[in-house]
Computed example of a mutant assay.
Amino acid sequence: MPELAWYAWALLAVAAVIVGLSKTAIPGAGTVAVAIFAAVLPAKQSTGTLLLLLIVADLFAVAMYRRQTDWKTLARLAPAVVAGVLAGVVFLWFADDLWVKRTIGVILLAVIAITLLRRRFASGVATPGPHRVAAATYGTLGGFTTMVANAAGPVMSMYFLARRFPVKEFLGTAAWFFAIVNLFKVPFSVGLGIITVPGLLLDLVLVPLVVVAAFAGRRLADRMPQHVFERLVIAFTIVGAVYLLLG
């Protein structure tokens, strides 16, 4: 077990709660957990440790929202996501932590700006042509950012928000998306050496907090108005993007 100060454990506990909530109530908030883990643990260990907690939260989210999923959207995203993950693997071999953070921060801010402009001046991604382009663009960026920093939450949140999904369909589609993608990432993460025994031991301590927060998030989602949900998604996405760009 890594030797950490009490305040480091407290921060990791907060991050674990955020992980659970982000999967079942507030997508985009997970980037805050990415920031906390990166601040407390070495970069590679933080990525691998957080990945396993995300998978646990994904499983609970899938169980809760499995009936509210847009499978056509996931099928359209799949090829681009695979390409993005593979690009992320290559990028990790050459880029240092600073370049990774800044690259993802720029991408996220660009995604936010484009999405807000589309929602203001157009009809989202409803027509077939733009939808295919958006799926390819967001899918590639989502695959890339999830591989290099577990930071695809804001990217995909902007895509699902542009699709104008209701709260439960948004959460169900996102749950299946991340469950599949995060499991797909495991062999690459093992090969890159970012999943470690100390990280597994940390996960054993933090998993109960993730589970409790996931159930709390489900109750929160049942009571959350659509407009509040959308504003929270955008707000947490901006916070995560700024952190990754300037942190």
Rank of each mutant, 00 (worst) to 15 (best):
K72C: 06
T73C: 12
T73G: 11
L74K: 00
L74D: 02
A75C: 05
A75E: 05
A75T: 10
R76N: 15
L77C: 10
L77Y: 03
A80K: 10
A80D: 03
V81E: 07
V82I: 14
A83P: 00
V85E: 08
L86K: 04
A87M: 09
A87Q: 14
G88W: 05
G88P: 00
G88K: 02
V89W: 01
V89F: 05
V90T: 15
F91H: 00
F91R: 03
L92I: 13
L92A: 14
L92H: 09
L92K: 10
W93Y: 14
F94M: 12
A95P: 00
D97P: 07
D97S: 12
D97H: 09
L98T: 10
L98P: 00
L98F: 13
W99R: 07
W99L: 15
V100K: 14
R102T: 07
T103P: 01
V106C: 13
I107A: 15
L108W: 02
L109S: 02
L109V: 00
L109W: 00
A110W: 00
A110L: 10
V111Q: 05
I112M: 05
A113S: 08
I114L: 09
I114P: 00
I114D: 02
I114A: 14
L116W: 02
L117Q: 07
L117E: 01
R118M: 11
R118W: 05
R119P: 01
R119Y: 03
R119E: 15
R120H: 11
F121W: 13
F121T: 07
A122Q: 08
S123L: 12
G124I: 13
V125G: 06
V125K: 02
A126W: 00
P128W: 09
P128I: 13
P128L: 13
G129V: 12
G129H: 03
V133F: 11
A134L: 05
A134W: 02
A135L: 08
A136R: 03
A136E: 00
A136P: 02
A136L: 11
A136V: 04
T137L: 15
Y138D: 11
Y138R: 11
Y138K: 10
G139K: 08
G139N: 10
T140N: 09
T140M: 15
L141C: 11
L141V: 08
L141T: 06
G142A: 14
G142T: 08
G143W: 09
G143M: 11
G143Y: 08
F144D: 04
F144C: 13
T145M: 09
T145C: 14
